[in-house]
Design a binder for these strands. Structure first.
Lengths: 339, 339
DNA sequence: TTGTAGGCGTTATCAG
DNA sequence: CTGATAACGCCTACAA
């Protein structure tokens, strides 16, 4: 089935392409008669505008790009859902790319999206990313960019995050109030802003409660942070630091690793050791013991990021000035069985 | 920063657009000198071809579409990863859409992708889908289509699945061999092929082992199937059918729901009741007790589906005949603590 | 070796 | 109210 074009409709009706185009776009200066004829024929022939041609003319693709570190990830999956929902409302399509936490991939993928001439880009940075020239490339192309979750504070664009520092502070304060005294932290790798902020929140909470910060109680999750990190570090803690009575993990996945290790070797949670996560993955509510954690609104983060991006795309189209926003969405403590 | 075009390079160099184009595409009939000059300038000006124009000329978008029922889903996330990996190899981008298990959305999304003129479409059908005209629309547009996981047997296109019936048969046979006698099945909704096949595998295994099939031991998961289905049906089973000693669930998520209920009310797994899942979600290896299940190779399913799709896209481009494939990938039993 | 011309399908301007 | 014309940026016969 060949695709119908304006030209075909025009010749079949013995009128000009221009008129057909106008009729279909409901221009006022076409007679009701011709308009109707055009519309009818277009419907019969299943006419749909050739998006390639439209893109070329209008210089927009009605498509945005999304780069995330990992797909198999409860939090990011929820973010994507939020983005897709918002995109659908505005008749936009979303191209999704995965950086795999690699800076090099991230860079390449930005180029791909820019070459594709997407109308805007949404990104959460990889854990390796410590310089931001590639982000500036996006801006220099005048392509709207919104960062979320793992952001670069110094890059001049809109951002959607939670207040990681405060959330971590709340979590650790909660543990302290519960009576835990030796609280370890399994932190994320050194670069991502959210990992830094969660660490700082942890530290601040200790200090504000007159507990000396002890760097030997902080363990770095080298990998992603991943389940394995939690498992391996839990082992270390149990053997080398029996005095520890609680662990604040940078992520639920890490926390689940801790729980698994403790379950395997028969360490009682929370009586011997308490575990606190971060993100509120679905999994956390079904493991035993159920994990106390911070609820991080992934879906909302996705929606808000997309919504800001679309606003910026529209402003740009009207040559209106764009004011970058930094949005912080709220979090809350979910108390369950592990603390 | 305005985008560089062939024209700009041409005028700056005082040569024709044609020559520039040829030089950049490494045509043999351009002098080494001019070629070099063009390439150098192109690099300086950061020339990249305008994909809108290329699309229009070549009539291909170097983009494929993917429609899946749900994103927040371990299995589908893995499928997507496989697809993205394969797409990246071939310099293709992927537009992802979520049908939310709704037939109407699925239909609309097909139209979106077709209008976008993607070069091919990958799909797993929604649970509601029971007629396939919309899929035929794809084929009538001459757009390659590959179905995976939840497929329509009657539609004439390539398919990638596992052998759901055999996998279910294996699972239930395993339970029987383990000595379980009253085995219930929490099945998926009535339409999806994989839900039907898993049910049939369950039934066949019973029959082949001289256990009378009892329809009152089969419970339908109305929702997705979802965690809640498992939880609610487990409650029913425990109260109304205390004779049941094992449950074969259509999905890990359902199985996890069962486990959660049993844990809450103090029913011992597997001694009082055994639980067997399907899919091998990550979660299943970290809950307590760890879930026995069927390993379903999501990543491979994604890779294979994409790979077939790209092959068909290429064949079509060369006007070569396409032979549709139906691939079945292998599964295996993962024995853990719940059985 | 280089360049001219036409076209991909649509939209916008401007004249009739 | 209608249509001719040009342009978006690139590609490719075909000429020169």
């Amino acid at each position: 089935m060949k695709d119908t074009t304006l030209k075909e409709i025009a010749t079949k009706l013995g009128i000009s392409i221009t008129t057909v185009s106008k009729a279909l776009k409901n221009y006022p200066d076409v007679s009701a008669k011709t308009k109707q004829a055009v519309i009818d024929l277009a419907q019969n022939l299943h006419y749909t505008p050739n998006s390639f041609a439209v893109n070329l003319r209008t210089k927009e693709s009605k498509t945005i790009g999304l780069i995330i570190p990992t797909l198999v990830h409860d939090f990011f999956s929820n973010v994507i859902q939020g983005i897709l929902e918002e995109a659908e409302k505005r008749d936009y399509l979303v191209i999704i790319l995965q950086s795999n936490e690699k800076f090099e991939f991230e860079k390449k993928q930005i180029d791909l999206l820019l070459n594709k001439r997407v109308d805007g880009i949404l990104m959460s940075l990889s854990n390796e990313t410590d310089e931001f020239e590639h982000l500036k490339t996006i801006l220099s192309h005048n392509t709207p960019l919104v960062l979320f979750d793992k952001i670069a504070k110094l890059v001049n664009c809109s951002k959607v995050t939670i207040n990681d520092r405060k959330a971590a502070y709340d979590a650790v304060s909660y543990l302290i109030k519960k009576g835990y005294k030796k609280i370890a932290h399994f932190r994320g790798s050194y670069l991502p802003q959210n990992s830094i902020d969660r660490f700082l929140g942890y530290k601040k909470a200790l200090e504000d409660n007159n507990i000396a910060y002890d760097s030997s109680l902080v363990f770095v999750c080298e990998n992603n942070p991943d389940f394995e990190d939690g498992y391996a570090n839990a082992k270390k803690v149990v053997n080398e630091h029996p005095e520890i009575d609680a662990i604040f993990a940078v992520t639920d996945l890490v926390a689940v690793g801790i729980i698994k290790y403790c379950n395997e070797v028969g360490i009682a949670i929370p009586t011997q050791i308490a575990v606190f996560g971060f993100s509120n993955w679905f999994m956390s509510s079904v493991i035993s013991p159920k994990l106390s954690t911070i609820d991080q609104p992934g879906f909302e983060i996705g929606r808000k990021s997309a919504s800001i991006l679309f606003d910026e795309i529209n402003l740009k189209k009207n040559n209106s000035p764009v004011i970058f926003q930094s949005i912080e969405l709220g979090t809350s403590i979910i108390e369950r069985e592990s603390t």
